[in-house]
């Protein structure tokens, strides 16, 4: 009996691996279709709309600035408590429907005027989401330094999508949605912050296998990344 169970297990495993490849695509497309939630760190016109609504109904007393900070979180919590919703301070589809506002899809609600800035934030998130903040700014700065360098393409998208240039672009992690920290790191770099002093390469010394990259002059190490010229 045990043997049969074992065989069935192996069979099931085969099914899931074969089926997995197809499933993945379905799940990924479902992700991009999902509705947006507004929470701490969000910003933009929709946040202004939420703040205005909360203010009109007497839940929010600060200025309508389009930035979802602590005061907005508290106001949303108060609103949710009053209407018997889950009190989490996040405006998801349920809270939004109570408020009578539509959240729309993720693509139409980007608070970025510039698509370059958003692309840069995606690279930062994909490549450096576990790094200290200055390590995130540093990754964004390397992209911009490459744009300025004569040895690389001359646009942000050219640099980002150059084959083999960034691991997280090659393996598809670039398509994850960036968080607030990645976005502000990208903003810092666009505004001129560069913790690397002009570096155009970086690598993780624990995983990098290329001898060539290890021969570059090292400028600094931030978190898990070594930055070089």
């Amino acid at each position: 009996m045990k043997k049969i169970f074992g065989i069935v297990c192996i069979l099931l495993c085969t099914f899931t691996t074969v089926g997995g490849a197809y499933l993945k695509e379905t799940v990924a497309s479902a992700d991009t279709q999902s509705v947006v939630v507004y929470k701490y760190g969000s910003s933009g016109a929709k946040v202004k709309q939420i703040q205005t609504l909360l203010k009109n109904q007497g839940f929010y007393f600060s200025s309508v600035d389009g930035i979802y900070g602590t005061l907005t979180v508290n106001a949303v919590k108060k609103y949710q408590r009053t209407y018997g919703l889950t009190v989490d301070g996040i405006v998801g589809s349920k809270t939004a429907s109570y408020m009578g506002i539509s959240l729309g899809s993720s693509s139409s609600n980007s608070s970025f005027g510039s698509s370059d800035l958003y692309l840069l934030a995606k690279v930062v998130y994909a490549e450096a989401r576990g790094e200290p903040y200055s390590g995130k700014v540093a990754v964004a700065a390397v992209v911009l330094n490459r744009v300025r360098s004569s040895s690389f393409p001359n646009t942000i998208s050219g640099v980002v999508y150059q084959p083999y240039a960034f691991t997280a672009v090659d393996d598809g992690q670039i398509n994850l949605s960036p968080d607030a920290s990645a976005k502000s790191a990208a903003q810092d770099a666009i505004n001129g912050w560069d913790p690397t002093g002009g570096c155009i390469y970086y690598y993780n010394p624990r995983t990098a296998t290329s001898k060539w990259i290890r021969s570059r002059p090292v400028v600094t190490t931030i978190g898990n990344h070594t930055f070089c010229l």
Partner: peptide
């Protein structure tokens, strides 16, 4: 400048093409 973007789309490591990119730029 058109060639720089053609070059950057080729499937080779960036360090392979960096001197040629610099030349074209």
């Amino acid at each position: 400048s058109m060639l720089v973007s053609s070059l950057s789309r080729l499937s080779v490591y960036d360090q392979t093409t960096s001197n040629t990119t610099k030349y074209l730029n």
